[in-house]
Amino acid sequence: MIWSRALLFFSFALATSLQVNAAVADSPETNVAGELRVAYRTDDKPVSFLQDGKPTGFLIELVDDISRRLGLRVTYVSTTFAAMVPAVQNHQLDTAAFGVLVTPKRKAVVDFTTPVGYGQAQLVSRRNAPLAAIEGADGKTVAVTTASALIPLLQKIAPKVTIKEFPNIASSTNALIAAQVDGLFTGNATAGHLVEQHPELTATQTVESGINALPVAKDRPKLLAAMNQALASAMKDGTFTRLFVKWNGSAMAIPQRLFSDYPGMPQPAPDAAHAAR
């Protein structure tokens, strides 16, 4: 009696776990069936951040939209920039909702979707000791997030600038305000936000760093294809354009290269920015 009941329980458990694989039939295989587990950052405003206890931001809403199109529920998991790529590679997470620069080393361990943006890192410095550009700032110290792909780029264009690595944007901003560093580099959206938040800071030079895309594990080609397809639809039907304007305002332009990547993507309406506000 006990044995047969145990057997029943066991086969039920087995069936449930088999269902995981069965679900793949219509929605693409993810680490947890029916769910898209996504890395986000708590401090990368306005791209990916935490507000009122909920992840929000430009790329969060874009990923929300993509997962709707894929028929997947989204779960956001906060990670640091540093921990994200290994987490995707090792099937802890399916993808990330923040700007990840596509680099050869990263491409060796994870795949990337088609572009969601072009990395435009901007130099932020103190208004009372501004840095106009990284070139010629010899002897100065500039903060960059640990292991950011910007580091080799900056070393190439300004070898005499000292680069200091910080674990997150909050700590590098503190260091900048406290004059522990002379400038910091971060994505232009974040830079714009920092300048708004801290009137004593100013954003100057923009450095184009490369393609930003969403990472997907190498052994999930179906998920990658589905995400690319969803992304293309979001571009074409204006969802991307609407979200971009909503989060970045009208002052920032959508990178031109995106329009050639996704033919037919609508331009923001001239008054869209005002409407969004």
């Binding site: 290994p86 640990t146 200091k164 690595e165 700590s171 590098s172 260091a175």
Partner: peptide, 24 residues
């Protein structure tokens, strides 16, 4: 590492962390 390190200032953990991230 919490306080920000230049390349030559990195101690064992920071160096290992960087390498771990870059090589995933």
């Amino acid at each position: 590492y919490l306080l920000g390190l230049t390349a030559s200032q990195r101690e064992m953990f920071a160096i290992a962390q960087d390498a771990a991230i870059n090589n995933a």
